[in-house]
Design a protein around this nucleic acid. Sequence first.
DNA 1: TGATAACCGAGACGGTACGTCTTGTCTTCTC
DNA 2: GAGAAGACAAGACGTACCGTCTCGGTTATCA
Lengths: 187, 187, 187, 187
Amino acid sequence: MPRQERADAARNRQAVLAAAERLLTERGGDHVSLDAVAAEAGVGKGTVFRRFGSRAGLIKELLEERSRTLRENVTDGPPPLGPGAPPRERLLAFLADLTTIGEQNAALLSAHEASCGDHKHEDPSYRFWAQHIATLIAAERPDLDADFLSHALLATFDADLIRHMQHEGKSFTTAVQALAASLLDAR
Amino acid sequence: MPRQERADAARNRQAVLAAAERLLTERGGDHVSLDAVAAEAGVGKGTVFRRFGSRAGLIKELLEERSRTLRENVTDGPPPLGPGAPPRERLLAFLADLTTIGEQNAALLSAHEASCGDHKHEDPSYRFWAQHIATLIAAERPDLDADFLSHALLATFDADLIRHMQHEGKSFTTAVQALAASLLDAR
Amino acid sequence: MPRQERADAARNRQAVLAAAERLLTERGGDHVSLDAVAAEAGVGKGTVFRRFGSRAGLIKELLEERSRTLRENVTDGPPPLGPGAPPRERLLAFLADLTTIGEQNAALLSAHEASCGDHKHEDPSYRFWAQHIATLIAAERPDLDADFLSHALLATFDADLIRHMQHEGKSFTTAVQALAASLLDAR
Amino acid sequence: MPRQERADAARNRQAVLAAAERLLTERGGDHVSLDAVAAEAGVGKGTVFRRFGSRAGLIKELLEERSRTLRENVTDGPPPLGPGAPPRERLLAFLADLTTIGEQNAALLSAHEASCGDHKHEDPSYRFWAQHIATLIAAERPDLDADFLSHALLATFDADLIRHMQHEGKSFTTAVQALAASLLDAR
DNA sequence: TGATAACCGAGACGGTACGTCTTGTCTTCTC
DNA sequence: GAGAAGACAAGACGTACCGTCTCGGTTATCA
């Protein structure tokens, strides 16, 4: 039986995540060293690396924390997010939530892009979202390339683009919904 | 009178660009230091920075070299790329060419993403493409959010996604064309 | 009354000593962290530190374990090691035994040097050996600087030197004996 | 032709060496990080590592700087250090100078021992001294184990021992000379 | 052709961050 | 409640890279 996480370990884990988010938000996706995160969290640098392995691991975990609820709702929750609703409604509801998360965490997204380099597709979290979207698209429109479109939709979750929309006073959520609706409704 | 580029300077410029491309292609978008580029080109590191200013500048120039012809054709060339053709045809023709460039230069794209960080929108080259796409979409479908859609379309030019498509044996060009067509034809 | 060592504590103590020796021998005096020792012994790291205080303490204890018999023989044993024999014979007999221990524990010696840093002289074990040698030299040759010579003799107990001799197929024991004899017999 | 050392490089080299010695002397052989050396010298950490490779490299170079003059005198200088004098005189003169260097640089010696670990014998500088001593001993006393004795003599160059002698108000130089003389004169 | 000014190669430099490692302490969990 | 397990703080180490800068030596233009 894998011994459960110790109390202090859990506390530190939270402290590091909170510190990382604080700094990333304040100083922008880049310009935040892990030394600084460790110092801000009041833990040693070794602790950060032991727990998260690398910069990428830390940021990935931050994003997963943000989206864990959505992920659970998508798997087990009630419609329209969870199973049961028609694919079209599920997809739009899902995108509404995911874009909201994106809008609220642009800095994290930006850091994630920078740290992942060229390995987005190997990230289990990314794979889950893409798979979910593709499945829903395929269910609604078997004639489309659901796989490509799922990646294309996720590609719009770009920190730059989100900030651009916010700067223009437009809703990223609305825009993505309209895009998805267009695709599903295309002749 | 701004003295024109010296012969050896031009030679070096080409050598650096060629070396950079060679290494980026061989070793993947990342994992290529400018030291290595300079060495491969047989020039001093200072020369690289004097000419291109920074890693981002070098890669940007590589991409612009690749797309210069397309850019000229879009501005001054004959239809359907250039002015004169209906917006729908111009857009599809343009995307066909741009995706082809993307497919042939995935490594460069990937390096570009990594080096630009969060400043994509300030890149004149990017702005030109986005502006061009937005104008054409707006001309064809004034009811859509042409600005957002132009960025969404360009967001699909992702090295990861392109490689994923190639790996699956699917045509990135075709997929993007279908996506664009869907948008323009949406009810 | 100091409660006597518990059975499991004694078992752990032995396990740690055995593990430390195994690793030191395998991987060389350095390159062995106390984490590794603890893991090899199948105990927690805290246990190592509680028992031995520090890296230096652990290694010191290992060496003392190796030389305990010699120490007892020197103090209470029969001649020529113990009291009773002429100083010259006692010294040569003592060096014969000590060099043999050194030859068989070069890895430990090397670790000891590294961990003691600049505090060799404060180590009670070292002081005992040095004192013993100095006393014997002084008894035999009051005209010499017994104090210095005792340290000089012990300085030859260097892991590097021992390995060098073994590599050359020469006997460290013999060499040290010859050196000591030269000193005692010098005109 | 190997391009010669640049002016600023030479300046920095000196600055680093001077800073290292200052700190080592002040704070003792250990307790000096390379970060601190770099800061004290007013150069970047990268500079220290580029030039000296490692902690050991830096300290080795410091010692070599101290003994370069002696080394040159031994090779090319006038008797009694250089060639020409009888081996006995050469050895004693050499040891007189080397012990003096040792006495004046105990802190460096101590740092050297700590950083070299178990690789003393691979250090070209050490090999040179040992070879020189062994050659002289062999010339004077072919019946002795010159190789072992050279290492034994060098083993007395121990920071601890030197400090012990100084503390006792005894001359390390004199003691080593007496030891060497004993060996050469032994019956 | 010779001078001279721009240019170049080579690479050292400051600086920053990363990820690894180690020691000795300290907290938690377990028996 | 004692003792084991192992997470923790602290921070040095060595590596990698970037972008700047310096230094002579070359090149190419001008006199």
